[in-house]
Amino acid sequence: MAEMAPSLKTHSFEEVAKHNHKDDCWLIISGKVYDITSFLDDHPGGDEVLITATAKDATDEFEDVGHSDSAREMMSKYFVGEVDSSTLPAKAQYKPPQASSAADQGAGNLIKILQFVIPLLILGLAFALKQFGKKEQ
């Protein structure tokens, strides 16, 4: 009896994220879900790069590599459905560091200065003691 193709349906992010290892590997690329388990051994970049792209939206990683037209055409045979975009986790937003007060900045600058000056003072003291020891003899 022939094996039935997986149903092409809408998958939640949580469902797709469970398929995150060598024996069961699904990716989300441009809102589509691909079961690439059978392709892992054939991927020119190795299987590890694909496995690390699971459990997240891998669109940026896929696009950054610059895949060929033939690679893009090949994807259709691994297509298993769409991802429910309402279940995707929010992308992390860049948050600039909190502005510190002038007192905090001053203390930070003082520490940086002391990290430089204290070793110089110790070296100077050691040199002076060495010179003083020579005069005493």
Rank of each mutant, 00 (worst) to 15 (best):
S38N: 07
D104R: 06
D47N: 01
P96H: 06
P44W: 01
G31C: 10
K56T: 09
F62G: 12
Y94R: 13
G108Q: 06
Y78H: 15
A103R: 10
A55G: 09
T54N: 00
S30W: 11
G31D: 04
L88I: 06
V80S: 04
G45N: 13
M74R: 11
D104F: 09
K95E: 13
G81W: 02
I36Y: 12
L40P: 02
S70D: 10
D84V: 11
K95L: 14
M74A: 13
T37P: 08
V83F: 01
T37D: 00
M74G: 11
S100M: 11
P89G: 05
H43D: 04
S76C: 02
I28S: 09
L50H: 07
G108H: 02
F62S: 10
E82Q: 04
A92L: 15
G31S: 11
I28H: 07
I28V: 13
D60P: 10
S85G: 04
I28K: 08
I51W: 07
D42G: 04
D104L: 06
T87E: 11
D47R: 00
H43I: 00
I29K: 12
E73K: 12
D42T: 08
Q105T: 01
G81F: 03
S101K: 09
G46F: 00
P89C: 08
P96L: 05
S85Q: 10
P44H: 00
A53F: 02
T87K: 02
Y34T: 07
H67Q: 03
A58G: 09
M75L: 15
K95R: 12
I28N: 01
T54F: 01
A90K: 14
A92H: 03
D64S: 15
D47M: 01
D60F: 12
A107I: 14
F62K: 08
D41V: 03
Q98M: 09
S101R: 08
P44D: 06
D41C: 01
G106N: 01
A107W: 07
Q98S: 10
L88C: 14
A53V: 06
G31L: 07
A103N: 02
G81M: 04
L50K: 10
Y34W: 08
I51H: 07
K56Q: 14
D47Y: 00
Q105P: 01
L88W: 03
S70G: 00
D41R: 04
Y94Q: 05
K77T: 08
A92Q: 14
E63A: 12
A107N: 06
A90T: 10
S100V: 12
A58V: 04
L50V: 14
E63M: 13
T37S: 00
S30T: 15
T37I: 07
A102H: 08
P89F: 13
L50I: 15
A53R: 00
S100N: 05
F62T: 13
V83R: 05
S70H: 07
G31Q: 11
K95Q: 13
S30D: 15
E48Q: 07
A58Q: 02
K91E: 14
A71Q: 05
